[in-house]
């Protein structure tokens, strides 16, 4: 399995894993809040995770390319198609 990246399609696995962790933390707060909508401490936790997630995703997208196809500062040429896709990465 050749996991070498093509030049021009960098990926920062360490930073990706941090994004994945925050994404997962949000999945948990969302599911919990859906059945506990008045739980203030978890709501605050959710907002904190969401804020950290959004900031980190923004930094990642500036440096390594889009996490979302809707990324607003897309560079030329169109980077969304760049490999690796999530299933092609050795974590």
């Amino acid at each position: 399995m050749d996991r070498n990246r093509r030049p021009g399609s960098p990926v920062n696995v360490e930073m990706l894993r941090e994004i994945m962790q925050l994404n997962f933390a949000m999945i948990e707060t969302v599911l919990f809040l859906n059945t506990h909508p008045t739980c203030r401490p978890v709501l605050d936790l959710h907002n904190e995770f969401a804020s950290r997630f959004n900031k980190l995703v923004e930094r990642y997208q500036e440096r390594y390319g889009p996490i979302y196809a809707s990324y607003e500062n897309a560079e030329y040429p169109w980077m969304w198609i760049e490999e690796p896709w999530p299933w092609e990465i050795k974590y």
């Binding site: 399995m1 990706l16 894993r17 994004i19 994945m20 994404n23 997962f24 999945i27 889009p66 996490i67 979302y68 196809a69 809707s70 969304w80 896709w85 999530p86 299933w87 990465i89 050795k90 974590y91």
Partner: peptide, 17 residues
């Protein structure tokens, strides 16, 4: 739905099988 270009959790295999 909007795709995020990440997995929810890492998926690795130590050896192919």
């Amino acid at each position: 739905w909007e795709y995020k270009k990440i997995l929810e959790y890492p998926a690795n295999v130590r050896r192919q099988d």
